[in-house]
Amino acid sequence: MIINHPLLGPRDAQEFTYLGDATLIDRPDGMADAAPEAFHDYLHLRDNPAGTHRELWYHEGGDRSWLVVTRDTRTHEITRVDLARDVALQRGRGA
């Protein structure tokens, strides 16, 4: 597979390490009252779509960026690649 790195252009997937669903960005607040339930959902309950999937890839053999790759799980077509940091900021993650 070829991942079109937003900064570096097309790079072979061999340079990357896969992690999983991009919802891993949405880590719950560990100090909240319902934290155990929230972490259970966060860690164990994932969608497994036949179709568009947003997932985390790490450019380990490159610039060490985490990327959010939007990929069709049926065809492997990649329709979008973002820096995970930008996605995290957009989703309201900060300090």
């Binding site: 252009g9 790079r11 072979d12 061999q14 340079e15 053999g61 490159g62 610039d63």
Partner: peptide, 15 residues
């Protein structure tokens, strides 16, 4: 596995 056409003088490629 980098495209030599992109590895022009003045580039630094981590691979």
């Amino acid at each position: 596995n980098v495209d030599p056409a992109r590895v022009t003088p003045g580039t630094a490629t981590r691979t």
